[in-house]
Simulated assay, not measured.
Amino acid sequence: MSNLQHRFFDPDSLERLFAEREISRHRVIDTPRCEITIDPIHEEIALTVPAEGSEPDVSKFSRISFAVLGDGPDSEFEIRVDATDAHFEAYNILTAIIDGLFAGSSFARATTESLGSYKALLRGKSGLSTEQQLGLYGELLLLRQLIAYLGEANAIEAWLGPASEQHDFVFGAFDAECKTTISEKRIHTIGSASQLEKIPGRDLWLISVQVTRAGLDSGESLNELVTDVAASLDMEADKFWGYLRGLGWRREDGDLYSQRFILRSPIQTYLVTEDFPAITTAALKSVIPHFETVSDVSYRVDVSSREPATPPDPLHITKSIDQQV
């Protein structure tokens, strides 16, 4: 519930605010009163709330500062995050604190739990980007079900996403592209002109996964999901870990991915047809002269209003995922 109340900044709208070069303050929720300040001048983002309860200890984090603003009944607690080169990640730290406050936690506890979930950013330790984490999360949800349904050899053979192939999963007669979003709408980032391009003679399905952050006692973290999938493998375990290493995953960094997620809505599947809103290589070639000189094509597509379709075997197992996350 809290997620729906305060997540009105997506990556694009946040970047627009930072690009304006003017400090802006935004009321996020009213109870408890939480306000987000975007400071493009210093490339920082801050959360202010009424000063109630004990103060959090942020002394271990070089990119986090805490201050008490004012005095008396109108005083405020402020958590400020250095958002250099990580605007949306810094914003997510603060919205995780708001989640905790909305759920009834004290400011000190909500802050401690949020900072613990974002060690990679705060320690300056390398790790998967937020987009990579979400993408892997969605793919592993499907892979886990495929392992149970098809067996580990067939499931791992079908999973081509980490190998940077055109589509994430390849089955006997069709392909599937899995996209995961944390937004309230089914808005997915398509990273190239080939991702939603069908291979001649084969159908292409888009698997739309919507997740939202969960509390400590619900959902599943990416680290837990990776561990669970690995535990279900025997002969294919080495190939699985090899795929993850290729993505930049290191087992010793598992604690960096402790943020827990739950499904925001049931997983939906869409058949990519001629009227699907996809930018493809063929379409671009027909309208852009010397298309071969164009690179790094990416776009966002909102499929919220499109009618999902019933997928063929084995993609029908996506319906059972809803009951397990």
Rank of each mutant, 00 (worst) to 15 (best):
S54D: 11
L47G: 11
L315A: 05
S265C: 13
A148G: 07
S164W: 04
G242Q: 05
E43M: 07
V226F: 04
A148P: 01
H167I: 08
R16H: 07
L204C: 07
R109F: 14
G215H: 12
I98H: 11
R264F: 12
T180N: 04
Y243W: 03
T181S: 13
G53R: 08
A309Q: 14
Q323Y: 09
A214D: 05
Q210E: 09
I41C: 03
F240H: 00
I38E: 01
A120W: 05
I288F: 13
F66E: 00
T273C: 06
G116C: 09
L14R: 04
R306E: 08
A86R: 10
L128S: 07
F261L: 12
S105W: 10
G116L: 06
L206W: 04
F66Y: 04
E274H: 13
G215V: 08
C34L: 03
S164R: 12
D296K: 14
V209C: 06
I29F: 02
L206I: 07
A278M: 03
L17W: 06
A19G: 05
P312E: 00
G116P: 10
T189N: 15
H316W: 07
W205R: 01
V170C: 10
D203P: 11
T212R: 15
T31Y: 09
N223A: 15
S183H: 14
I41W: 01
F18P: 07
N3A: 08
S114T: 11
S164V: 13
L122P: 04
A67Y: 02
I41F: 02
E43K: 10
D57Q: 11
P73T: 12
H87K: 13
D234N: 13
A158M: 06
A110V: 14
F240P: 00
D275S: 15
S183R: 14
G219L: 06
E22Y: 14
R186L: 15
A90H: 13
D74K: 09
D175I: 05
L115Q: 13
E43Q: 12
F169G: 03
V209S: 00
T273H: 08
S62H: 07
S305I: 04
Q145V: 03
V303P: 05
I147P: 00
S13M: 11
R16S: 12
T227Y: 05
F9C: 05
K198A: 15
G135F: 01
E292W: 03
S164T: 11
D217T: 04
A193Q: 15
D12T: 12
S232L: 14
K60G: 14
D12A: 09
E220P: 03
L204V: 08
D30P: 02
I267Q: 04
L115M: 15
V211Y: 11
P277F: 02
A214H: 01
Q259N: 08
Q166H: 13
E236T: 04
L140H: 04
T84D: 12
E177N: 10
Y118T: 01
Q259E: 07
L69T: 08
P277T: 05
G104R: 09
S117W: 03
I97A: 06
V229I: 05
A86W: 01
T84S: 13
I182M: 14
S232A: 15
L128A: 09
T112I: 06
T95D: 08
M1F: 10
E55G: 02
